[in-house]
């Protein structure tokens, strides 16, 4: 597979959130602001790249029967590493993401890529796949985060936009998370339908 195709698939055609519908919990919980969304996206990308790399390296040594347990241990190790690094160097993001950093362990995207890609492919393609999927996740989170922050809190990256008025403050609420994601995925489905067969 060409590099361009890997990235196109990770970010657009197989986007983990909008198309594969994976990783809903962090997507909904951390997209209340753009900076949190990007922080979450990049942390998950880091874990995804590292775990894909290591799992691909070890794919011949890990017996079939205990592969899932081994993957979970490796992923949890990198997650703990990210957790420590964020607490040491990016405290405000660490504080805002809270329990959702350790919960990257159970982010289905990471285990899904380990199982379906890294365990069957060489190291370099696995790293690229992790990077592409991670960026797809980050882009999706950032889109949702930007929508929810601009409309829900009336700010972007913390700067006030409409003189301190939030146009649709409901989007900052938990319910607004479901609502915003529902509309964004509907938009994605609409685009796919149009591309496939014109009028619907």
């Amino acid at each position: 597979m060409k590099i361009k195709d890997i990235f196109k698939s990770g970010i657009i055609t197989d986007n983990p959130v909008f198309i594969q519908l994976l990783g809903m919990c962090p997507t909904l919980a951390t997209s209340t602001s753009l900076i949190n969304a990007i922080g979450m996206g990049l942390s998950a990308t880091f874990v995804l790249v590292c775990s894909n790399m290591l799992i691909s390296l070890l794919r011949k040594f890990i017996p079939q029967k205990i592969r899932i347990a081994s993957y979970i241990v490796i992923i949890a190790g990198f997650v703990t590493l990210v957790d420590m690094l964020l607490e040491a160097f990016f405290y405000s993001i660490y504080n805002a993401l809270g329990v959702f950093i350790p919960l990257i362990v159970v982010n289905c995207i990471i285990l899904a890529r380990a199982e379906s890609f890294a365990s069957k492919n060489k190291v370099l393609p696995s790293i690229l796949d992790g990077l592409a999927m991670g960026l797809g996740f980050t882009v999706a989170l950032a889109i949702l985060g930007a929508i929810r922050e601009v409309l829900g809190s009336g700010t972007i990256l913390g700067f006030e936009l409409f003189g301190g008025v939030a146009p649709l403050s409901v989007l900052a609420l938990p319910a607004g998370g479901f609502l915003a994601l529902g509309f964004v995925i509907a938009a994605a489905q609409h685009l796919i339908n149009r591309k496939r067969g014109g009028a619907d």
Binding site: P174, A175, G182, N193
Partner: peptide, 23 residues
């Protein structure tokens, strides 16, 4: 259900309404 909303999007919007209720 409108075509674009079929499947997952309408489920999310239903969840949103449920979440409003629990609020």
């Amino acid at each position: 259900i409108p075509k674009a909303f079929q499947g997952f999007p309408i489920a999310l919007i239903t969840a949103a309404l449920l979440s409003f209720g629990f609020m």
